[in-house]
């Protein structure tokens, strides 16, 4: 039976937001949002623990950000300003597609400027611009279980987390060092959260791992795998390592060829048929702001403003 504030799509739409009238605010029905919200709260209360949630089929495919989209939908208010990035860029096709989805179904303001966003949904990167207490970072997660590639069974990995039995992970990392002289993990590098749960930070490059201890709330959504987890602000997040082989958040040993930044994560781009390379910031907003501020890199085009 229908209740007030009930669940028929379209019955609960807000009048304030300019949304497509066929959808409830932020697409999901209220009951689904409540279920996701309860899972988010559990995730924040037990940092790094993967909370099972009854993920819904979304109008985009599993593996394309449905977990992040559901978390964002349950978190947005009509007054938010949303930024969506994929690979650090606002204009990658899937980022564009997800941003359009929320413009259409939630009517929220959108931005490409990290500093202006209140909610940022991301795939594979943490923005270079440090986030603040007033921001929320939502990660899209493909495989939330950091132990999955060591032990495929959920029934087993769940026990390992319960017993805090992470020996298998340490053995794997040490075998890497024994065989290769280094930990052969360059992204989705496992971390320990608040001294308890080993967590997959999603496939961000390990360069981003040190930023995981930040003032913003971080929420992780894995739709197909039906898991939500979280890291509250100012929570210790330690990348797993060994005393004699400390964690190394390395990146390409270059500066950005467009803005000259030497602290940002770089994409390598093949620029000619002869295999010529250049390195550019993966965070397009960061790079653009620096260039607007007059910074230049080794391969910057001749600049009218500078010449004038």
């Amino acid at each position: 039976m229908m209740r007030p504030g009930g669940d028929r799509v379209g019955d609960d739409r807000t009048e304030a937001a300019v949304t497509d009238p066929a959808y409830n605010f932020a697409y999901l029905d209220e009951q689904t949002k409540r279920m996701i919200r309860r899972a988010i709260l559990k995730g924040l209360a037990v940092p790094g623990y993967q909370v099972p949630f009854a993920s819904r089929e979304m109008p985009m495919p599993y593996g394309w950000g449905t977990g992040g989209v559901q978390v964002t939908a349950a978190t947005l208010t009509p007054d938010d300003t949303l930024k969506v990035i994929d690979q650090g860029a606002d204009d990658t096709t899937n980022a564009v597609s997800i941003r359009k989805f929320f413009q259409k179904t939630a009517g929220v303001a959108v931005t490409e400027r990290t500093a202006d966003a209140t909610v940022i949904q991301t795939r594979h990167r943490i923005p270079e611009h440090p986030l603040t207490e007033d921001q929320i970072l939502v990660y899209q997660v493909p495989i939330p279980e950091p132990l999955r590639f060591l032990e495929p069974r959920e029934t087993e990995t769940r026990k390992m987390h319960a017993l805090q039995d992470y020996g298998l992970m340490h053995v794997k990392l040490y075998e890497d060092i024994a065989q290769n002289g280094a930990i052969a993990k360059s992204y989705a590098y496992p971390v320990k959260v608040s001294g308890r749960y080993v967590m997959d930070p999603s496939p961000i490059p390990k360069f981003d791992n040190p930023k995981l201890d930040m003032p913003a709330i971080q929420l992780f959504g894995a739709g197909r795998e039906q898991r939500i987890y979280a890291v509250p602000p100012y929570t210790p997040v330690v990348s797993l390592d060994f005393e004699d082989f400390p964690f190394d958040p390395s990146k390409a040993d270059h500066a950005c060829d467009l803005c000259g930044a030497d602290t940002s994560y770089l994409d390598e781009v093949i620029v000619d048929d002869a295999g010529g390379r250049m390195f550019v910031c993966s965070d397009t907003d960061f790079c653009g702001e620096r260039r607007d501020a007059g910074h230049r890199g080794a391969m910057s085009p001749p600049d009218a403003a500078v010449q004038a």
Partner: peptide, 21 residues
């Protein structure tokens, strides 16, 4: 709630914020 989607969204954000902080 007079406007369930908006009121619930705003209440949740506050609830989430106080639990996270």
């Amino acid at each position: 709630f007079a406007d369930a989607p908006r009121d619930a969204a705003e209440a949740f954000r506050s609830a989430m914020t106080v639990l996270a902080r």
